Simulated assay, not measured.
Amino acid sequence: MQKISRSSPGVLIARATCAVLLATALGACTTAPAPDSPGAGASLNEAQAGGPSRWELVRWQQADGSLRSIPHGDNGQPIIFEFNSGIDSAQGTVSGYSGCNRFTGGYGKTSTGMRFDPLAATRMACIPPRAELENALLTAMQSPFTTVGTQPSAGSMGRQIIWKTANGDLLQFIEREGVGQRGDKMEAQAAGGVEKTVYVDSQRVECTGVVRQSCYRVRENPNASWTLWYGPIEGLDFEPGTAYTLRVRETRVDNPPADASAIRWQLLKVESRTRAN
């Protein structure tokens, strides 16, 4: 495979690593793997489910074998998926940059790969090549992805994964510690956040933002009235009928999606759980 420079669409991919990974994936191009096959249930062997992980889309092979160009944003931003609980976690919140806009939503592991819950996204306009790729990506995410190849980290390369979309395209991602200025900014923002204790009611309630949705009822003082929390609580595996006392990190979100909160809560610790009577 020809090496690609960092300034051209895509990123530099080591030949040997890519060859092994693509061989696994291309063998599954015509038929999706069975749930109990190595491709479907492939482990990344370096699971990091206890913390967030960030993944960059580096290669898009269409069902006919042709490669799709992956343009970067105005400031060089790559396409990034950020899994708040790690890619190997059973479920959590995913957010990132889809080529033109920021998005956020839920994700969960399936027997064959990964599913994404309905996403909220910003609505910025951009030039046609980026808009077309973003539309194709967000459309693909409406159906589950099938895992057809994985590779643990080797040398300077991060862990890798190839997902197959419902229409047969292959999307190759590499794990990144922090990509460009935006990744550095996010880490600095998280480090500068405020830690606080919040109380979460045992049931979510129907609420209306931009659309009708379910909200948490929360308060920061056990004697205060409940208020509605419209966003996710990243890292919380909420169980209806259980009230929680949580330690969270609160940070502000720059340019949040139209139907998302400008405040971000990341779970640090579940201090207590109480089953409702």
Rank of each mutant, 00 (worst) to 15 (best):
A14P: 10
R15M: 14
R15F: 15
A16R: 15
T17M: 14
C18Q: 15
G27L: 04
C29K: 15
T31P: 02
T31Q: 13
P33W: 09
D36V: 08
S37K: 05
P38Y: 01
P38E: 01
G39C: 08
A40V: 02
A42M: 14
A42Q: 13
S43C: 02
L44F: 08
N45E: 14
N45A: 12
Q48H: 08
G50N: 08
G51Q: 11
G51R: 10
P52H: 09
P52R: 09
P52A: 14
R54T: 13
W55H: 02
W55C: 02
L57H: 04
L57P: 00
L57M: 05
V58R: 06
V58H: 03
V58S: 06
R59N: 07
R59I: 00
W60V: 00
Q61V: 15
Q62D: 11
Q62T: 13
A63K: 15
L67D: 11
S69T: 14
P71M: 10
P71A: 08
P71V: 06
H72S: 13
D74A: 12
N75H: 13
G76F: 08
G76M: 10
G76V: 07
Q77F: 07
Q77A: 13
P78E: 09
I79K: 02
I79W: 00
I80V: 11
I80A: 01
F81R: 03
F83T: 06
S85A: 15
G86T: 00
D88M: 09
D88Q: 13
S89T: 00
A90L: 11
Q91E: 15
G92P: 09
G92I: 03
T93C: 08
S95Q: 14
C100I: 03
F103A: 03
T104Q: 15
T104D: 12
T104L: 14
T104K: 11
G105M: 07
G105P: 06
Y107H: 08
G108I: 01
K109D: 10
T112K: 06
T112H: 03
T112R: 09
L119A: 03
A120S: 12
M124T: 04
A125K: 07
I127C: 03
I127E: 10
P129K: 00
P129C: 02
E132P: 00
